[in-house]
Design a protein around this nucleic acid. Structure first.
Length: 477
RNA sequence: GCCUCAGUAGCUCAGCUGGUUAGAGCGGCGGACUGUUAAUCCGUAGGUCGUAGGUUCGAGCCCUACCUGAGGCGCCA
C-alpha cells in the first residue's frame, strides 16, 4: 500500500479511509498517542494505539526521533487538539532514536545549540518551517522571472578574473600547498596549475550575466557566491546564494521597478503558500518578544510586516535627499550616531540606513544616484559627473537586501573609470568587447537570497536560514 | 579585523558583597496512572563550574592569558 503524505491526509480528511503513514515521532504520550511528522507540512498527525495490544518493551522503543510506519483508519478525533487521527492497526519501526543520547528533547532549545547540531535541526518545528519557506522563496523567484520571460543563466562558479572588486576571494588550486612549483623569479607558477592560471571562486555572476543579457535580452543567475571576507555579523556568510537579473535596454528606473515587483511577488507568494509555517514563526516571535521590555518589541508582527511591505509603494529617494534627511535628523543633531553626517559624499553606515527605514519612513526604501567615489567601476556615470546610477534597497531589520545599477555602456567612460579605480582592463577584455560591439543601456541588481529568507521568516541570524552555514572558522557538516 | 557580553548537569538557567555537602525546570533511568496535546504524579542517577596559570587561610565568584559562543561595528548581498 502506498504511503499517504501527512499534508494530503490532513487536507482531505477522509474519515473511514485506511492509510499508511511514514514519518518521525515528535512525541509519544500516555503510551498511546504518537505525534508523527513527515516533513510534508508543519502539522503532525496523531496516531492512536491500543496499548493492550503491544508489549511494553516494544512501546519503550517509540521515542522522539524514531522513524516508523503506521497503518490504520482515519477517524474523527475525540481529543480537542486535532480534527482527525489514525486508529492504528499496525506499527513498523524503521529506526529507533536512543533517548539517552538523542539531543532533541520535547522542549525549547536555543538557536545557538541547534546550530551545533545542524544535521538534526531540520527536525524541529522552527527549522522545518524555515526550510519549507526557503524552498518557497526560491521557487517564487524562478516563477517570477519565468513568467516575465527571463532566461536562467548558469554563470561559472570558478572564475579566472580577479577584477570584480566585490571582495576577498577563495583560491581554487590543485597545486601542492607544501611545495608549489615556482617560476624563475620565485613566484608561484600558476601555469602549472589545473587551469594554467590563477583561479578563484566567484564573488558575483554579474559580469557574465551582462554578456548574456546583451544577446538574450533578459537573464538572471541564481547560484552560490563566495566571499572570503572576515565578516562576523548576523547577515554575512562566506558561502551564500545570490540572484542577479540583468536586463538589456533597461534604465535605473526600470531596474527599481523590476526589483520592487520581484520582492513583492516573493512576499505575496510566501504569504499565500506558507501560511501555517509563517503563523508558527509569527507566534514564536511574539512569544520571544513578550520577554523583552516594551520599547524593544517590534511594532508589527512578522505577518503584519510582510503584509505592509506589499501594501504600499517602496519609498524612492536620491542619496542627496537621504543626506538632507539624515543631516536634519534628531540622532544626527544630538550626536547619537557613531558617524555624524556632515557633508554630501559620506558613505552611509548601517545606523543611517536603519534610521531611514525603521524610524523615518517605516517601510522599505530605495536609495539611488550615489556619489561615484563610493561605488563600483561599472556603474553608469550621471550627467552631473558626480553621481552614478546605483540603487540600494533597504529593508527593516536586514539593511541592504539588494544592490544594483544601470551599467556604464560607453566604452570610453568605462575605460576611464577602470583606470581611476585600478581595475585591469586587459583581463576584462571580454567585458569591454560588449561595449565595443552593439553596446546598449542595460541594468541589473543582486539580491542576497539568504537575506530575503531572513526577512520573510523573521530569523535574526542568517546562519539559521541556510542548511549548513559557512562563516569564518566554521565549515562543519 | 575591532568593541562589548557570556561560558555552571544532556538542554535552559539560578548561585547574594569570595566562606564549608553547587541548586531548579526540562530530558534520562525506575515505577504509578491512562483520551493525551512539550501528558501528569512519585522516586532516582547525573557536575575536574570553558582551559591553563595566579591572588587568598579559602575561588563557580577576584586577576591574567587562551579557547568557544552571542551581540554590535567595518567589508557587503
Amino acid at each position: 500500500m502506498q504511503r499517504t503524505r501527512i499534508d494530503v491526509l490532513l487536507s482531505e480528511q477522509s474519515v473511514g479511509q485506511t492509510v499508511v503513514v511514514k514519518g518521525w515521532v515528535k512525541s509519544f504520550r500516555n503510551n498511546q498517542f504518537i505525534s508523527i511528522n513527515d516533513g510534508s507540512c508543519f502539522d503532525n498527525i496523531q496516531a492512536v494505539l491500543n496499548r493492550e495490544n503491544y508489549d511494553i518493551d516494544f512501546l519503550k522503543t517509540i521515542t522522539p526521533g524514531t522513524a516508523l510506519k503506521v497503518v490504520g483508519t482515519i477517524v474523527a478525533s475525540q481529543g480537542s487538539g486535532q480534527a482527525i487521527e489514525i486508529d492504528v492497526t499496525e506499527i513498523e519501526i524503521y529506526g529507533t532514536a536512543n533517548a539517552e543520547t538523542y539531543p532533541l528533547q520535547p522542549k525549547k532549545h536555543s538557536k545557538e545549540f541547534l546550530r551545533e547540531i545542524a544535521h538534526l535541526r531540520f527536525r524541529t518545528n522552527t527549522f522545518g518551517a524555515v526550510f519549507r519557506i526557503r524552498h518557497a522563496v526560491s521557487f517564487a523567484i524562478h516563477s517570477f522571472f519565468n513568467d516575465r520571460k527571463f532566461y536562467y543563466l548558469h554563470t561559472p562558479i570558478i572564475t579566472a578574473s580577479d577584477a570584480e572588486g566585490a571582495g576577498e576571494m577563495f583560491r581554487v588550486s590543485t597545486l601542492d600547498l607544501a611545495q608549489p612549483p615556482k617560476t624563475e623569479s620565485g613566484d608561484i607558477d600558476f601555469k602549472a596549475d589545473f587551469f594554467e592560471r590563477e583561479t578563484h571562486l566567484t564573488v558575483s555572476g554579474q559580469l557574465e550575466a551582462e554578456l548574456g543579457a546583451l544577446a538574450l535580452g533578459q537573464v538572471y543567475t541564481f547560484g552560490p557566491t563566495f566571499r572570503a571576507e572576515n565578516s562576523n555579523t548576523s547577515r554575512h556568510l562566506a558561502e551564500f546564494w545570490m540572484v542577479e537579473p540583468e536586463v538589456a535596454f533597461a534604465d535605473l528606473h526600470d531596474n527599481m521597478d523590476l526589483a520592487e515587483a520581484m520582492l513583492k511577488h516573493i512576499i505575496s507568494y510566501v504569504l499565500e503558500h506558507c501560511q501555517r509555517d509563517l503563523q508558527f514563526l509569527n507566534d514564536e516571535q511574539i512569544k520571544e518578544e513578550s520577554q523583552k521590555p516594551k520599547n524593544q518589541r517590534s511594532e508589527l508582527s512578522l505577518i503584519e510586516r510582510l503584509q505592509s511591505c506589499i501594501a504600499d509603494d517602496f519609498v524612492r529617494i536620491s542619496y542627496t535627499e537621504a543626506i538632507e534627511i539624515l543631516k536634519n535628523s534628531k540622532p544626527n543633531k544630538k550626536k547619537k550616531f557613531n558617524y555624524i553626517i556632515e557633508e554630501w559624499g559620506a558613505d552611509l553606515q548601517s545606523e543611517h540606513e536603519r534610521y531611514l527605514v525603521e524610524k523615518h519612513f517605516k517601510k522599505p526604501v530605495i536609495l539611488f544616484d550615489y556619489p561615484k567615489d563610493i561605488k563600483a567601476f561599472y556603474m553608469k556615470v550621471n550627467e552631473d559627473n558626480k553621481t552614478v546610477r546605483a540603487m540600494d534597497i533597504l529593508f527593516p531589520g536586514i539593511g541592504e537586501i539588494i544592490g544594483g545599477s544601470q551599467r556604464e555602456e560607453n566604452l570610453d567612460v568605462l575605460l576611464a573609470r577602470m583606470e581611476e579605480m585600478d581595475v585591469p582592463a586587459e583581463e576584462l577584455y571580454w567585458y569591454l568587447d560588449i561595449r565595443k560591439y552593439g553596446s546598449c543601456p542595460h541594468s541589473g541588481y543582486g539580491l542576497g537570497f539568504e537575506r530575503m529568507v531572513q526577512f520573510v521568516t523573521g530569523m535574526g541570524n542568517i546562519r539559521d536560514v541556510i542548511p549548513f552555514p559557512r562563516t569564518p572558522g566554521n565549515a562543519a557538516f
